[in-house]
């Protein structure tokens, strides 16, 4: 337990992932849900870098997966924020329970 190995890193990323899942399921504020998604993406990034370091230390493929995940997360955040602004303009709330026009 003294030496940090792969499993210790995986514990941390696992904890972050499920904190993100919990936040995504229980919050109603759409911005906080989006932040939980960012948390989930970052835990996956930690996993990629840890596996890259401990298993394939001479390659860089894990780092490139992380780089492209960060890229896509930025694009996703911008589009999601545009959707949130539009939602707020039309409904004057970003509570996901209040927006049920397409539900019934």
């Amino acid at each position: 337990m003294n030496e940090i190995g792969l499993s210790q890193v995986l514990f941390v990323s696992c904890a972050l992932f499920f904190i993100g899942i919990y936040g995504f399921l229980t919050r109603r504020n759409m911005i906080t849900m989006l932040m939980s998604v960012e948390l989930i993406l970052n835990s996956v990034n930690i996993n990629f870098i840890a596996f890259n370091k401990y298993l394939f230390a001479h390659k860089l493929d894990g780092l490139f997966f992380t780089l492209f995940i960060i890229t896509i997360a930025a694009a996703e955040a911008s589009v999601a924020i545009a959707i949130i602004i539009n939602l707020y303009r039309n409904y004057h709330t970003i509570d996901v329970e209040e927006v049920d026009t397409m539900k019934f």
């Binding site: 990034n45 930690i46 870098i49 890259n52 230390a57 780092l63 992380t66 780089l67 960060i70 930025a74």
Partner: peptide, 19 residues
């Protein structure tokens, strides 16, 4: 900081700048 420990220095900087 985790990225820095795990030899991914460039990604650590990118993470701070982008996120």
């Amino acid at each position: 900081g985790h990225y820095l420990i795990m030899n991914a220095q460039f990604l650590a900087i990118v993470n701070i700048i982008v996120y």
